[in-house]
Amino acid sequence: EMHREVKPGSGEHPLQYSYCFWYSKRPPGRPADPSAFEKNIRVVATFISVEQFWKAYSHMKRPGDLNGHCDIHLFKQGIKPLWEDEANKDGGKWIVRLRKHFTSRCWENLIMAMVGEQFMVGDEVCGAVVSLRFQEDIISIWNKTANNSQVTTRIRDTLRRVLNLPPTVIMEYKKHNQSIRDKTSF
């Protein structure tokens, strides 16, 4: 599914990029095992048009309706949602921690902005992740070049705008190298 060649259908509106939705879940009762991550993640849909995006999205549960420790990832086709992927190795992500009530709406607004090319940072955006956790949920947007402050600033400002976040919500930037050192994402 990850490598499937997708084309816009007749009458469909093409996106700038093709994307894959991925899903990963940690089995209940099991501790985190970073080496198992790549085994537990799979592609659930691939799309290249607005209409295919909605089809894929509407067939998935909304984050607010999911249970347990899991993540939904939406990445450009060809980029794996892993720190070690070529596209991600010098990159980082903006992290926003959300009270659970806001997760579904924020995720939807984020992915619409991403596939609609609202971030205006060339091809810097790699993907987005929503992480369902015990007491809060976390939304992240990953970009290629952690050290490009012009890019990361613009992503942050667009994120704040599209998520309609109050000024009190803290956004944190984390380089993937730091996550690798910490052995944890958040």
């Binding site: 996106l15 607005v50 509407s58």
Partner: peptide, 21 residues
């Protein structure tokens, strides 16, 4: 080059199309 950009309103309108179901 030119980028394909869609705003939120347009994406939501497309959601109602039969092609999106």
């Amino acid at each position: 080059g030119t980028r394909i950009i869609y705003d939120r309103l347009f994406l939501l309108k497309c959601r109602d199309s039969p092609l999106s179901k």
